[in-house]
C-alpha cells in the first residue's frame, strides 16, 4: 500500500481519537471511536493482516460500539454537555500524555529494529485466516479452550446476576 494511504488513515485515526475525548456529547464521542476503529482496521490491512483488520470492524465497530451507543442513548446524558471543563484535570491529563509520548519516542529511537527497513512479504496474498486458525488449534489450543470456558462462565454469571430477584 502506498504511504499516502498510511498517512491518510493515521491522520483520520488521530483526529477522531482526539474527537473521542474532546466531544462533549457522548454519542458523538462513541461515533468518533467507530471512525477511529475503521482507520485502525485500514492500517491493519495495509500490513496485509486482512483477518485482524476485518475482525476489528466486525467485532468492535459492528457489535461492541453498537451496544455502547445503545446504552448511551437509553441513559439520556444531557448533563455531560453542560458540565464545566475542569482545568486542572485537562492540564494533568495532557501532561501525562506528553510524558508517555516522549517515553515512547525514546524507546522506539533506541530500538534497532525501528531503524531497519524490512523486505515486503514474499506473497502478499497469504491466507492469514488459515494460518491464524491453524495456530489457534495446534500451538495455542489449551489457552484457546481455557478462554472459551472463561467466556462461558462470564455469560452464565451475567444471566445468574440479571435473573436474581430483587427484594
Amino acid at each position: 500500500m502506498s504511504p499516502v494511504l498510511f498517512w491518510f488513515f493515521a491522520f483520520v485515526m488521530l483526529v477522531f481519537g482526539a474527537a473521542v475525548i474532546i466531544n462533549r456529547n457522548p454519542i458523538a464521542s462513541a461515533l468518533s471511536l467507530v471512525v477511529c476503529f475503521m482507520g485502525l482496521s485500514a492500517l491493519f490491512m495495509s500490513l496485509d493482516a486482512f483477518f485482524i483488520g476485518i475482525i476489528q470492524v466486525l467485532v468492535y465497530a459492528g457489535a461492541v460500539m453498537v451496544l455502547f451507543l445503545f446504552i448511551i442513548m437509553l441513559l439520556d446524558l444531557r448533563m455531560e454537555e453542560r458540565r464545566k471543563i475542569n482545568l486542572v484535570a485537562v492540564v494533568g491529563g495532557a501532561g501525562v500524555a506528553l510524558a508517555f509520548f516522549i517515553q515512547i519516542c525514546f524507546v522506539v529511537g533506541q530500538l534497532s529494529a525501528a531503524q531497519k527497513t524490512f523486505p515486503p512479504l514474499v506473497s502478499p496474498k497469504t491466507d492469514d485466516v488459515h494460518s491464524v486458525g491453524l495456530l489457534l488449534f495446534t500451538n495455542y489450543n489449551l489457552p484457546f479452550q481455557i478462554i472459551g470456558v472463561l467466556v462461558l462462565v462470564a455469560t452464565i454469571g451475567v444471566i445468574v446476576l440479571s435473573k436474581r430477584e430483587l427484594r
Binding site: F51, I54, I55, V57, A61, G62, L69, K125, V129
Partner: peptide
C-alpha cells in the same frame, strides 16, 4: 477478490445498524 470475503460482507453489513440507530436517536 479478497481472502476474507464473507467476513467482509458481515463486517460491512453490521455497520448498517448505525444508520437506523442514529436516525431513531
Amino acid at each position: 477478490d479478497i481472502n476474507v470475503g464473507v467476513l467482509f460482507v458481515f463486517a460491512i453489513a453490521s455497520l448498517g445498524v448505525y444508520g437506523i440507530v442514529i436516525a431513531g436517536w
